[in-house]
Design a protein around this nucleic acid. Sequence first.
DNA 1: GTTTGCATGTAAACGGTTACATGATTGG
DNA 2: CCAATCATGTAACCGTTTACATGCAAAC
Lengths: 176, 176
Amino acid sequence: MDVRTICLGILTRGDATGYEIKKLFEEDGYAFFVEASFGSIYPALNRLTEEGLVSVREEAQTKRPDRKVYSITPAGRQAFLASLLEPLSEDRYRSPFLFAMLFCDLLPQGSVERVLDDYIAHAERKLTQLSEGNPETNGKGERFVRDFGRTMYVAMLQYLREHRSEFKAEALKAAE
Amino acid sequence: MDVRTICLGILTRGDATGYEIKKLFEEDGYAFFVEASFGSIYPALNRLTEEGLVSVREEAQTKRPDRKVYSITPAGRQAFLASLLEPLSEDRYRSPFLFAMLFCDLLPQGSVERVLDDYIAHAERKLTQLSEGNPETNGKGERFVRDFGRTMYVAMLQYLREHRSEFKAEALKAAE
DNA sequence: GTTTGCATGTAAACGGTTACATGATTGG
DNA sequence: CCAATCATGTAACCGTTTACATGCAAAC
């Protein structure tokens, strides 16, 4: 999903500035499956405006850049719908962690344990973040996606905890 | 993980050509967490050769481009180890599917069901692919990674099957 | 007879990140 | 007093994908 489409999607939920669009996808934990930086959001919004898929109204502010509040236009709504209906590109999961684990036999004593523990801690934080999202204002899609994420992190953590002991120094020595 | 490091990693397991490197990560189902195309592999191998991290021996072939078989050098091994030991960058999971599901309320009747069913079918294929990998020649890391992938796909499929009925046309009508 | 597999490579295009520039306000 | 928040934007850089070029052999 390119940044253009992400922006359109967010704007179907209500008007927003570029700054707010970024924040919306950081908080609550949608960040786990989609992402965009300022450097791509602002140019995307400009292009969408040129193409008539969104409209802008500028709100003057003293001593700050003017807020540019974007709204999706009917044409934008249509384009967004169309992009959801055409074949979705595949999910991609890129994991430096799994890649490193593939070579655990090459790593020095203890460092695999450290990598694993760091990763577990990280997954725990992500899971907490996902579970903390306000559960009331969310619609059907939001609930489905959040629970999907939670399910995946729970399964991941269970697997990691179950297999952690295999990589302890003692276990490795015993296997020699 | 950049293509350079991926190539180095594969070469720690044995010599290979660029062509073989690509294949190694397509088959067996390592593809679910790491990927690279020819357009990035060949230049990466050339650069690694320049830097002395790998060496090449050319095997002449009639009526075909010469096979270029790459081996990792001691310097390459060292560089690879070092890259595994420095802080790993975060996993990234990008999901057009979840993004689309977020907006299921905007989609026409039946199309959410279709998206879900396609995704389930796709996940089933991936799981089968992962389970079919030859279980004997694999080392500790390979086993860990493969079972990690299996665990995740199993959890995903269970979640999707459990929630599928919520998106059936009848269920949506009943909720009106 | 067409597709798949083997085998390497280049160049343009793409999408995106990172770093930079600017600068007042609010909260700790 | 310093960090974070609000707020927009540009430009250089990066790694990668896609399309192209070449071409035989074996399998279906």
